[in-house]
Simulated assay, not measured.
Amino acid sequence: MGRVTAWNTDHDVDLLLAFLNTRDEEEHTDVLDDVEQWRLWARKRDIGEPGDPADLRPLRDALREAVAGREHAPDIAVDLRAELRSGIPVLAPTTAAGLFMAAALRLTVVGDWDRFKICPAHTCQWAFYDRSRNRSRSWCSMRVCGNREKARTFRERAKT
């Protein structure tokens, strides 16, 4: 084994967001509904053996529930190995589920798990990563979902 390279937080954020957003509420699509679509998705992200997408749906849905802060998020167990590489302990996932869980664990350890959020717009529900300094961002996009919500509440106030 070669030298352990520096861990990249952005890679974990991007990977986890992509996984959380394999379901699209606006388009009514789910990458995990189609084996070939899942394999293409996984290949684009350099995920070795992607496994059966149906096996990953409970993990994705549980992670989305947890990100949304819902108390009824189901408990999920994922087999995950740890190894000592070049004198450094590292998570060594052996499955796609392990890869996603390892990313979530690393981001939890560095205190960034709470930066993952779900857009509250019912037609959106997109997962996003809050990069604001005070972690107060509410919408996936202020230009789209935030603007729609503000316009809707303005119209409701104008009616009364």
Rank of each mutant, 00 (worst) to 15 (best):
E27A: 15
N134K: 14
S136D: 13
A121P: 00
D114G: 11
R137S: 07
R157N: 10
G111P: 11
R152V: 12
G69C: 06
K159T: 11
R45K: 02
R43A: 14
A42L: 03
H11F: 12
A42F: 02
C119I: 04
P50M: 02
G69H: 06
L91R: 07
R131L: 09
L16G: 06
V90K: 08
T95M: 07
A62S: 12
T94M: 07
D75Q: 13
P58S: 02
Q125G: 14
E49L: 05
L15K: 05
P53I: 02
L91C: 08
D12I: 03
A97L: 05
D55F: 00
I88E: 13
I118L: 14
W38I: 03
V78H: 05
R148W: 09
A158N: 07
L32C: 12
W7F: 11
Q125S: 11
L91I: 07
A151V: 15
G51P: 03
R39W: 06
K44R: 13
E25D: 07
A104E: 08
T95I: 09
P89A: 14
R143S: 15
P89E: 13
V109F: 04
L15G: 02
E71V: 08
P74A: 13
A104V: 08
K150Q: 10
R70L: 09
F100H: 10
A97S: 11
D75W: 06
W126A: 03
L16H: 06
E83A: 15
A121V: 10
R131V: 14
M142Q: 12
D34P: 09
N8D: 15
A42R: 03
R157Y: 02
E27Y: 00
R70M: 01
A77W: 01
E71I: 02
E156R: 15
A68I: 01
R45E: 01
C124M: 05
D12H: 08
L20E: 08
T123N: 09
L32R: 14
G69I: 06
N21C: 07
H28C: 04
R152A: 15
D12P: 05
R106Q: 09
K44Q: 14
T5F: 01
L99Y: 01
C124E: 06
D34T: 03
R143E: 15
R157E: 04
L80A: 07
D75S: 13
S138V: 15
